[in-house]
């Protein structure tokens, strides 16, 4: 009933179909991936403030001209890191989805015969 309003945005064709067991497996695998990347992400961003307490070099040294390593990382390096993590995680998640869900015949270019 709640679905009747969903409109034409999500056509559910006859050929595409996911079994509950295979989706459960894919979700478990995705969760493992997400947690792994989440851990990497947390360690990276938490290490910046922690390092400024633990390692005088971190905020005392000069890296590029007048910036300390801490400043370089906070003002630029982390954004690059986020983007790299995002691209890696999205690529991995997508290829896991591709490989764990869907029937064996609905590949993109492979089906065009």
């Amino acid at each position: 009933m709640a679905r009747s309003e969903m409109g034409p945005g999500t056509p559910r064709g006859p050929e595409e179909f996911d079994g509950p067991a295979e989706v459960a497996a894919a979700a478990r695998t995705q969760r493992r991936i997400a947690l792994g990347y989440g851990l990497l992400f947390s360690v990276a961003i938490l290490s910046v403030p922690l390092l400024s307490v633990a390692l005088p070099w971190w905020s005392g040294a000069r890296l590029v001209g007048g910036m300390s390593p801490s400043f370089v990382v906070a003002a630029g390096g982390l954004y690059v890191f986020f983007l790299v993590v995002a691209v890696a995680a999205a690529t991995l998640a997508r290829s896991v989805e591709d490989r764990m869900l869907g029937s064996s015949s609905d590949e993109g270019p492979g089906t065009e015969r």
């Binding site: 056509p11 989706v23 979700a27 989805e97 609905d106």
Partner: peptide, 21 residues
Amino acid sequence: PRLWTRMHGTAADRQAERLAR
């Protein structure tokens, strides 16, 4: 389980992508 399947499954995605193709 049907809800879980819709939330984590890619059937709708594949269908939409196939239509787009």
